[in-house]
């Protein structure tokens, strides 16, 4: 809802309005400047570290003549397929398990055990199963993202507001009507929380998977750069991963905030 600004509102200077952005950018620029200066002064060994200028150079090289685009496409495909599958199956299974008590009791031991185990511990096993092609990475991403989505969906379906349930029952609601008009819409904010966590864990999954068993992808690029002491390449990979993480998390957070306005308070 937009309100008209009162005419008596004191004038804000450009700085006070954008303080966060200005100070934030300043720190980044300063950091890069100091870094570059140290590099130019010869204070940094190229074996252990890199410099902004070298990273930009390497970035342009890998982008134009190297395999960066192909690697990004490969990693992105792994992530997209794995995460897409996790989102669909996680929400469907979560709704079913959340709604049917017996199903929940039945699957509970497995879910608790798998949820508590760091999924990267399973990476070697998954590579034995699926080889070092695309499907082992897809499966790792899937496993990483599936559990947070599932657990949050289960929680959302179960978090039925008791007052709303009582009201629906007083108006003769059937179980199916309670499911479609209360349980499903009520769990949307919870599902989106699961999606956000799934994005973060899925990204870890794709990078770890490619580092351990792959000959392509951004994760492999980082691992290879490390093994060959090519710190410039290593940094390019890291920065690509960092920016993908920031972008995807930002999208998921926006989505979550958009719907959490009516999250039931507990």
């Amino acid at each position: 809802m937009k309100r008209k600004e009162p005419s008596g509102r004191p004038h804000q200077s450009f700085y006070t309005k954008h303080e966060a952005v200005i100070l934030g950018s300043l720190s980044v620029v300063l950091m890069i400047g100091v870094w570059q200066a140290c590099w130019s002064a010869g204070l940094i060994s190229p074996l252990f570290f890199s410099s902004p200028s070298a990273i930009i150079k390497q970035f342009r090289y890998t982008l134009m003549e190297g395999t960066l685009l192909a690697d990004m496409k490969y990693s992105g495909t792994n992530f997209a397929i794995g995460f897409g599958l996790a989102a669909i199956t996680g929400v469907v299974a979560g709704v079913l398990i959340g709604w049917y008590r017996r199903l929940r009791l039945f699957f509970d031991p497995f879910l608790s055990a798998l949820y508590a185990t760091p999924r990267v511990a399973m990476v070697p096993l998954i590579i034995i199963w699926f080889g070092i092609g695309i499907w082992s990475k897809v499966f790792i991403v899937f496993l990483s993202a599936f559990f947070p989505i599932l657990i949050n969906t289960v929680g959302g379906v179960r978090a039925l507001d008791r007052d709303l349930l009582r009201a629906a029952k007083a108006y003769c609601a059937s179980d199916w009507q309670i499911f479609t008009t209360l349980a499903i819409p009520g769990s949307v904010p919870f599902i989106l929380t699961g999606i956000r966590q799934g994005v973060a864990l899925g990204l870890i999954g794709v990078v770890v998977g490619e580092m351990v068993g792959s000959s392509q992808g951004v994760g492999f690029m980082v691992a290879y750069g490390g093994q060959t002491f090519n710190t410039d390449t290593l940094f390019v990979g890291m920065i690509v991963i960092a920016f993908s993480g920031i972008l995807l998390t930002w999208i998921a957070e926006r989505l979550e905030r958009r719907f959490s306005r009516w999250r039931p308070e507990r």
Binding site: L164, A170, L182
Partner: peptide, 18 residues
């Protein structure tokens, strides 16, 4: 059990927030 011949106004407004 509940029926269409009755309707309840609750203490908590019990409205669907969405």
């Amino acid at each position: 059990g509940p029926g269409v011949d009755r309707a309840v106004v609750f203490q908590q407004s019990s409205l669907l927030p969405w």
